[in-house]
Design a protein around this nucleic acid. Structure first.
Length: 463
RNA sequence: UCCUCGAUAGCUCAACGGUAGAGCACUCGGCUGUUAACCGAGUGGUUGUAGGUUCGAAUCCUACUCGGGGAGCCA
């Protein structure tokens, strides 16, 4: 008899009803009486469990009655309509094979656990309802992102994880080295001699694939990266991880407006896709994690995202009755409290803020005609804050070189980045989207450590 | 890194200067349709670590470690 998935049983019930089937999975809970009992089995294919009914006539009735939580079993039997209120059908067992018995000190209860405790058993937490839902949605979301870009002809580019450009500037980096720390090679001035290192120079883990992907953008026109990113920042917040995944599309012959349209279209697409393709999981999140979730997501899908300039945002904040802890003024960066006010209280929907002062943004962003602002965009969403940061890139060689000079960046460190401006450069734009931030927004999970399988954060790299 | 709150049984918590307790988990027993099953009994503790105050400390004080929340930085 072929073993079928529990998802298949739920999705194609008519095919299997009143027929003999076989399933395999892990015991979520057992309820026994003297001569019969119930087992709820989860096989990982589906959020919901399948209820198995067993009776005294099983040859191993006693062993089955005392099954421990999370034991691995295989069940053969007939799928019947269930008289119980909480499920439409159940599997009446004719044979239960115990594949792997779980020890009685299994640390997960049938009761609710705190997320803090579950983080200490990250190897077991995917067996809980919440994490089963989170990581199935993470998978569906990742697929939706690829599907969105692939359907539009974008080329998926694998930018390097180990980077040799020592001047990315997007944050503190993790050094990659094979040097022996006990005996570091030194140069004449007593400094560590990286020419003796594996790559013959200083190397680090990437903090962004943007600069590299821009070069492929100038060959394939529409490209994206989707991969791990590393930041060694000492950030202790529920929104930061040292290792996270980032999506970075880059589009050629395109300006900031094209960029915003792409971001808006992508977000609406992937949220809709997850709602359609993981309905049980999303129902769970809406019921148990955040009961405003569906309303929030519907609002994103159905509203036109607002677009305002940085200058306008400052005006709004200056006129707000709200008391802010940090000062507001043209030229000052927007703080979390300001961003929250604008997206949550003033507009109550996603907002693009564009055209920031050049002083508070990166060197590669395109200078606007006013010579004061650059074509940057941040997308703020209610509840999470900044979810996307992007810009139109400076394609004019002289202006880019001038900006780098102002900021003290050395041209020789960026020779290849400057080269793409020399050989058929064109206007282009792109943005970065944090996968985990988006996943938090879609699931309502409030800590990034609970949407990463084995989170790496300050002072923590267990498992 | 700063501010703030916390750490007691495997888990979630109570006890707030005077003999450390409950629910769940686990073990045993009972129960013919359960749904975080239910009913009865039992097992389970150097109260995060190190000092200090006190006749006496889980409780008060100090430091440290770890965790939560907020801020900065950002995705």
């Amino acid at each position: 008899m072929q073993t079928i998935s529990i998802k298949d049983v739920y999705r194609n019930t008519e095919t299997y009803l009143n027929k003999n089937i076989s399933i395999s999975g892990w015991v979520r809970t057992v309820r026994v009486s003297k001569s019969f009992g119930f087992i709820e089995v989860n096989d990982g294919s589906f959020f919901k469990n399948l209820q198995v009914v067993f009776e005294e006539n099983l040859p191993n009735f006693k062993e089955v009655s005392s099954l421990t939580l999370s034991s691995a079993i295989k069940v053969e039997g007939i799928l019947l309509a269930s008289p119980g209120a909480k499920q439409a059908f159940e599997l009446k067992a004719s044979n239960v094979t115990i594949e792997g018995l779980s020890q009685p000190d299994y640390p997960l209860q049938k009761k609710r656990h705190t997320f803090e405790y579950l983080r200490t058993i990250a190897h077991l937490r995917p067996r809980t309802n919440t994490f089963s839902a989170v990581f199935r949605v993470r998978s569906v979301l990742s697929y939706a992102i690829h599907k969105f870009f692939q359907e539009r002809g974008f080329v998926y580019v694998h930018t390097p994880i180990i980077t040799g450009s020592d001047a990315e500037g997007a944050g503190e980096m993790f050094r990659v080295t094979t040097l022996n720390f006990e005996k570091l090679p030194r140069d004449d001035e007593g400094r560590v001699d990286f020419s003796k290192d594996f790559f013959g120079k200083e190397t680090n883990l990437t903090v962004s694939g943007q600069l590299e992907v821009e070069t492929y953008c100038m060959a394939f026109k529409n490209v994206y990266t989707f991969g791990p990113t590393f930041r060694a920042e000492n950030s202790n917040t529920p929104r930061h991880a040292a290792e996270f995944w980032m999506i970075e599309p880059e589009i050629a012959f395109a300006d900031l407006n094209d960029n915003m349209n792409l971001a808006e279209e992508m977000l609406k697409y992937v949220i809709s896709y997850v709602l359609e393709n993981a309905p049980e999981e999303m129902e769970f999140f809406n019921n148990f994690i955040d009961n405003t979730l569906f309303a929030k997501l519907d609002n994103v899908i159905n509203s036109e995202f607002e677009q305002i300039t940085y200058t306008k945002a400052i005006e709004i904040l200056e006129q707000a009755k709200e008391k802010f802890e940090y000062p507001v003024g043209w030229g000052l960066d927007l703080k979390t409290e300001h961003e929250r006010y604008i997206t949550e209280k003033y507009f109550k929907k996603p907002v693009f803020i564009i055209n920031y002062p050049k002083e508070i943004k990166a060197f590669y962003m395109r200078m606007n005609d006013d010579n004061k602002t650059v074509a940057a965009m941040d997308l703020l969403v209610p509840g999470v804050g900044e979810i996307i940061g992007g810009s139109q890139r400076e394609e004019r060689l002289e202006i880019l070189e001038q900006r780098m000079g102002e900021l003290g960046l050395k041209e020789e460190d960026y020779w290849w980045y400057l080269d793409i401006r020399k050989y058929g450069g064109t206007k282009h734009a792109g943005f970065g989207l944090g996968l985990e931030r988006l996943l938090m927004y879609i699931t309502g999970m409030s800590n990034i450590r609970d949407v990463v399988a084995f989170p790496r954060t300050v002072k923590s790299a267990d498992f």
